[in-house]
Simulated assay, not measured.
Amino acid sequence: MAKIGIYGSSFDPITNVHLWTASTVAHRCKLDKVILLPCSSKRKDKRLKTEDEHRWNMLQLAIEDDSRFVADDHEMKQDAWNIYTYDTMVHFKKKYPIDEVYFIMGADLLVDIAKGEWAKGRELVSENKFIVMAREGVDMLSTISRSAILRNNDDGSTFHLVDKGLAMEISSTYIREEFAVGGEPKYLLPTSCYDYIKKHGLYS
């Protein structure tokens, strides 16, 4: 039985922090595989700057040398944004029926679930396991204990709390902004992705 983490983001573009986070989680939580899951471009809560083709190509370039990482376009290819994280986890648990599947998220999203801001949040928490990455200003244990949804579905193994030990919050937004004004974010993302962005004139 393998241990698999599902790591979703817009990856617009993928950054070295995305990769460092995935690597840290894989190492600390003894994951056999991390599935990087680019979100649908049809999400109402995100305004993506890049065509799906480019996001997908950069993701493939970024992970080609690490056998632990796998890209999956399950959410990207949805016809409309009518799928929730709960449904995504149902999909992957069916795809990997004999494995342990974890949803990887930041502590800020844990707060949102606690506030009831996620569709099917109660079902999501009651039926899945999570790897939660620390975020500055968020007390993960306190967040769980203050939320009836979270604390009543925590059997001691529901939430694996991880502090990376180093605050690196370089965002895709920052990188896009740097490219847009002629900045130099070269060492904030994989060299192959930097070269791809330059070649295709993305974010300018």
Rank of each mutant, 00 (worst) to 15 (best):
V25R: 04
A26R: 10
A26M: 10
H27L: 10
H27D: 14
C29E: 15
K30T: 15
K30H: 15
I35A: 03
I35G: 02
L36S: 02
L37S: 01
S40Y: 05
S41H: 09
S41E: 15
K42V: 09
K44W: 11
D45G: 05
D45W: 01
R47A: 11
K49C: 12
T50E: 04
E51P: 09
D52P: 13
E53V: 15
H54D: 08
L59H: 02
E64Q: 15
E64K: 13
D65N: 14
D72L: 03
D73H: 09
H74M: 12
E75H: 08
M76R: 12
K77S: 13
D79F: 11
D79C: 10
W81F: 12
N82C: 08
N82I: 08
I83A: 11
Y84C: 07
Y84I: 00
T85P: 02
T85H: 00
T88H: 04
T88Q: 04
M89S: 03
K95F: 05
K95S: 08
I98H: 13
D99K: 04
D99E: 13
V101F: 01
V101W: 01
Y102M: 02
F103W: 14
M105N: 07
M105P: 09
A107K: 06
L109D: 03
L109Q: 10
L110Q: 02
D112R: 05
D112G: 03
I113T: 00
W118N: 02
W118I: 01
W118S: 01
G121V: 02
R122V: 09
E123F: 02
E127F: 01
M133V: 15
V138I: 15
V138M: 07
L141S: 13
L141W: 12
L141Y: 13
I144R: 03
I144F: 05
R146H: 15
